[in-house]
Nucleic acid binder design. Structure first.
Lengths: 295, 295
DNA sequence: ATTCCCTGTTGCAAATGCGCACGAAAGCCG
DNA sequence: CGGCTTTCGTGCGCATTTGCAACAGGGAAT
């Protein structure tokens, strides 16, 4: 049973009763239809049709085939409709993967997107390992650093996150405003646990801040932020999450070399789909205010 | 969605994850698989697979196709098993068509056949119009007269039914034994209603018996038999249904020209099937005694 | 780090399958 | 009853499809 096209041909013959009619429906020559039937019957070893000059009538086996193939035809029609329609509707899973620490920025936007497109099931993955777009593990990835240059990936600039050194109001009142980088003696810092961190300001910190002054380290940016807020020490925080916080004081303004550039990455094939396009548009529309600050 | 083979190819790719694996299972070249996928995706306008160097992974659309085609494959496998097996098992409908008047002879045999093959559903059709084997209306036909010579039909001699003139014991006692054909005056006959009957003795009767002596006519042979039994008159009856009946007296022995030859006719294609063969064999085995009488 | 193997991709030639044309047989209708 | 229409059947030439072989790229194992 290893030729589904012949089954399809036999199905039309069984349905219509004539080779000519089946040929017309199938858009092939009636000779082809006869050859398909002959081949199928030869391989099955059973006659599917009674041949006579007024057409073909299905035998019991042919009628059995008719029933099965009828169901198959329906199934395929529905499948086709689903698949063709799927490209134009915003529904199903939408997998977004990103580096940790952007949750505070992204989750509200994702929530808004989901509210606008209720048929979407969002999956927001922030894992250590890089999810690979090539395997279809994610629809959209948000990457940091230099622009990714994988083939088959569509890369667009997303945001440039600026970082500055912040301290809690309480800390500044107690220790005074340090002059950075000239007079930092006696000051305490909060930093990243990962000594090989690829955060853009990490190198500046390694070079400028003596290790013994970094009294709190964590890999979780939310923990870092909490530590700064608690007055443990000064630390790098994204401006987007600090400007409206009255408990934080900008100890040193953002520097260009501390900027972290974010990229929106999608797989070439998925990039064209309505679903991904809708998501990218929503993302851009709702980060407009952040983008203006940067330029 | 007008190429089921491409769906089958895509199904194997989705199932196995690689073009090479699918090609091996399908027994075609890798290149063919790729071309099928490309053609299918182009026609659908939707990517079914994410291509990467380790193989193909199905997109949502591809996974949808996988589910549907999986079911289809199962259906076709079962269909194939049924169709292939059907030829070798004695089950399903068995349609037998014959001329009227053989019921008394055939029905007991049919009953025995059905008892031996309980999976068979018998249909015994005795209609005025000829059921056509070419259209698959019947599996086996029992025809009378000269051997049918339709192409695509397999014809075998079945039985030669002998007819004789019978009268009821009561009738003979009252009217005496007539000398046939010399002295028939005053005798009454029972005959067929159809003046153009093709029964072999019909012509003899038309030529020999004056019409006014035929006092009872019917198209139903059972009615004729009942009429003879009731003493209405003498009439032609098959020897097979009279030899063991003590109420009937053979008024004139069978003549060769009164013999009715019966033929077993099957369609060429159906003749080979186990079901039909089993029926024909059973039929011959259980009419052996009748055949010996004839020869 | 390097080799090897497994993956997909592509150009070219052969082959299978297709369409066309013609023929024949049987039902239909005047 | 005879032309007409509709049906299937088949040989032949061509085109699409297939197979082959060489290529390329990435992962994995050594």
């Amino acid at each position: 049973m290893d030729n589904w096209d012949e089954i399809r041909t036999a199905y039309q013959v069984a349905r219509l009763g004539t080779v000519s009619g089946a040929a017309e429906v199938l858009g092939v020559h009636h000779a082809t239809v006869i050859r398909h039937i002959d081949a199928l019957e030869k391989r099955m070893g059973v006659k599917l049709f009674q041949r006579h000059t007024r057409g073909y009538t299905a035998t019991e086996a042919g009628q059995d085939l008719l029933r099965v193939a009828q169901a198959t035809d329906d199934q395929f029609s529905q499948l086709s409709a689903r698949i063709k329609g799927r490209g134009n509707e915003v529904s199903g899973e939408l997998v977004v993967t990103t580096i940790g620490g952007l949750s505070q920025l992204l989750v509200p936007i994702l929530a808004g997107f989901q509210a606008e497109y209720p048929d979407v099931q969002l999956r927001y993955l922030t894992s250590m390992r890089l999810f690979r777009l090539e395997y279809g593990e994610a629809h959209v990835a948000i990457r940091a650093g230099s622009p990714p240059q994988q083939p088959d990936n569509v890369v667009q600039p997303f945001l440039t996150l600026r970082s500055a050194i912040y301290g809690s109001k309480d800390y500044v009142e107690r220790h005074g405003m340090p002059k950075i980088p000239e007079r930092m003696a006696g000051h305490r810092f909060v930093g990243l646990d990962d000594v090989n961190s690829r955060a853009p300001w990490a190198q500046w910190m390694r070079e400028t801040v003596p290790a013994h002054q970094v009294v709190f380290r964590s890999g979780d940016t939310r923990a870092v932020r909490q530590a700064v807020l608690s007055g443990v020490g000064m630390g790098f925080l994204g401006t987007y999450e600090c400007t409206q916080d009255n408990n934080l004081v900008e100890v040193h303004p953002p520097l260009p070399e501390w900027e972290s550039r974010l990229w929106l990455v999608t797989h070439m094939d998925l990039h064209r789909t309505t679903k991904v396009q809708a998501f990218l548009r929503y993302l851009k529309d709702h980060t407009e205010h952040l983008r203006e600050e940067v330029e």
